[in-house]
């Protein structure tokens, strides 16, 4: 069961293993303590077609030190044990999940205390077996809705999603600048017509001002690239995991405080 304690809720994305798993753990705990309602644990992938340069670089760093899906699940387990009430989502491209084995992945995700899964390149039509497995294990399948999705497609997305619906704020990859009052607002309005689920808006939400603007029409906002960028900058200065985590925590508090 995923729920947003705060209004609007904040979803924080972290590429796991960037620059190492210890830092990811410290960052995630700090983000939770700073008020993130949901953590998206990003599984690094060699070919992240939906991501901009910042998250591409984070994936490369995570893969360079050998981060695997198994490590991300173990990380989730540790976080779950330390913060029993938080919401944990696995955010991945499909291939690492298939390679691990979908049934095995779903079983293990449930075991470690994950609440939901978002596979970026899995559309509803291709998700038959995946949805069955998720349902059996009471995991929430989260699907993307896009500004280009037709109303008919939004209906399918709404019917297949649990937990929340992830509204992509604009056409494009993660991290590019978004006009949060444009496409995104229209899209949330359209989604709300066919679903009662909470809607989180993501892609390009970079600061307190964006967060506040999105909060006026959506249930939550996803912050990814802005967090990954802080991790990148801090790590480049050889900061300790604790120092990186503190910088991310400060950023999240700052984003939330103004609302």
């Amino acid at each position: 069961m995923i729920f947003f304690r705060s209004q609007p809720g904040l979803v924080a994305y972290v590429t796991c293993g960037d620059p190492d798993l210890a830092t990811s753990r410290a960052v995630i705990l700090s983000a939770i303590d700073a008020g993130a309602d949901v953590i998206e644990l990003g599984v690094p992938f060699s070919d992240p077609v939906a991501d901009g340069p910042v998250i591409q670089r984070a994936s490369e760093r995570a893969l360079k030190n050998g981060t695997r899906l198994e490590d991300v699940l173990t990380l989730a387990e540790g976080v779950r044990n330390s913060r029993p009430l938080t919401n944990l989502i696995i955010f991945s491209y499909l291939n690492p999940l298939i390679r691990y084995g979908l049934p095995k992945f779903v079983k293990r995700a449930k075991e470690v205390g994950v609440d939901g899964v978002l596979a970026v390149d899995l559309i509803v039509e291709e998700a038959g077996e995946y949805r069955l497995l998720m349902e059996k294990s009471h995991l929430a399948p989260i699907f993307l809705a896009a500004p280009t999705s037709t109303d008919a497609r939004l209906k399918k997305v709404a019917a297949a999603s649990k937990g929340f619906i992830y509204a992509v704020a604009r056409t494009g990859v993660t991290g590019a600048k978004t006009d949060v009052r444009g496409d995104a607002q229209q899209l949330v309005k359209r989604i709300k017509k066919s679903s009662k689920l909470p809607v989180a808006v993501g892609f390009g939400i970079a600061n307190a001002e964006d967060f506040q603007a999105v909060g006026k029409y959506a249930d939550a906002a996803v912050i990814g690239t802005a967090i990954v960028k802080i991790i990148e900058e801090q790590s480049a200065k050889a900061a300790s995991p604790e120092a990186v985590a503190a910088a991310v925590g400060k950023f999240i508090r700052c984003v939330k405080k103004t609302t």
Binding site: A50, E125, E126, G128, A145, A146, P147
Partner: peptide, 28 residues
């Protein structure tokens, strides 16, 4: 992942292979 048997007659499928694995933004 659709299984080979049920997937045979879906347009865009060649046996178990093919399909559409893209971010939702490209579906329209």
């Amino acid at each position: 992942m659709a299984r080979a048997k049920e997937a045979k007659n879906i347009p865009g499928r060649f046996g178990a292979y093919g399909g559409r694995y893209v971010p939702e933004t490209l579906m329209a």
